[in-house]
Design a binder for these strands. Structure first.
Length: 209
DNA sequence: ACATTAAGTGATT
DNA sequence: AATCACTTAATGT
């Protein structure tokens, strides 16, 4: 895997060399938990391949989806946590087979001071993620569940690159911190509106969605 | 054919 | 919108 190729448009050459020498390539299987709540961040992941799912977990162990980290992105939470070695507030799970560059956190201070492209990369990912989080809050506060569901389905489809979603209603309900029956009813409504097709453990998104 | 699990439904809060 | 109790449908053995 040629890291330099992949990132040469966003990072300066000197930084690329630095990454090559300091970062390790790590791959994990689908479902692997990269970081659990309470754990301390030790490395910054730079995604090369696959999708990372970032969730919050409540006392009962229910998970609420916060956002996905796609290829060529990094997780904003790790930046903010790692700077001062705070334990993680979120859980990161590999949504598919994932390959990422593990950058030791020791380099962060230096890199930010030394490399403008690194600094702006960090700032950019924090800013866009922060905006997404604001969005998520708006959804929880002001949007009805049916709108959240549509948003969820679209995100999922984008994450997997397919309009066919392989999830049961129960799994969706868990990720949205809702209940199965409610999700079933909302999906039924969407099906009646010709927005989706429902199968067992599968949902097909239609263009009208 | 039977058991198991997903999905659908009406009533209740 | 959540929960309960129950039914119906799909799937695995």
């Amino acid at each position: 895997m040629n890291i330099t190729e992949k990132f040469k448009t966003i990072f300066e050459p000197e930084l690329l060399r630095e990454i090559e020498s300091k970062a390790k390539i790590v791959s994990v299987k689908e479902g692997d938990v990269l970081l659990d709540i309470g754990q301390t961040v030790r490395i910054i992941p730079l995604l090369l391949k696959g999708i990372l799912k970032i969730t919050r977990v409540d006392q009962a162990g229910k998970e609420l989806l916060l956002y996905y980290v796609h290829a060529n992105e990094s997780c904003a939470m790790t930046f903010t946590c790692c700077m001062q070695q705070y334990p993680s507030e979120v859980k990161a799970t590999a949504e598919s087979e994932v390959e990422f560059l593990a950058i030791p956190i020791g380099n962060m201070d230096e890199w930010i001071a030394k490399f403008p492209t690194w600094k702006s990369f960090v700032m950019r990912t924090i800013r866009s993620r922060f905006n997404e989080l604001l969005n998520a809050i708006d959804q929880l506060a002001f949007q009805k569940l049916d709108e959240r569901l549509v948003h969820y389905l679209k995100e999922k489809s984008k994450a997997t690159g397919s309009s066919l979603i392989n999830l049961s209603h129960e799994e969706i309900a868990n990720e949205m911190a809702s209940s199965r029956e409610v999700i079933s009813r909302l999906l039924k409504k969407l099906e009646n509106d010709k927005k989706v097709l429902l199968y067992r453990n599968q949902i097909k998104l239609l263009r009208e969605l």
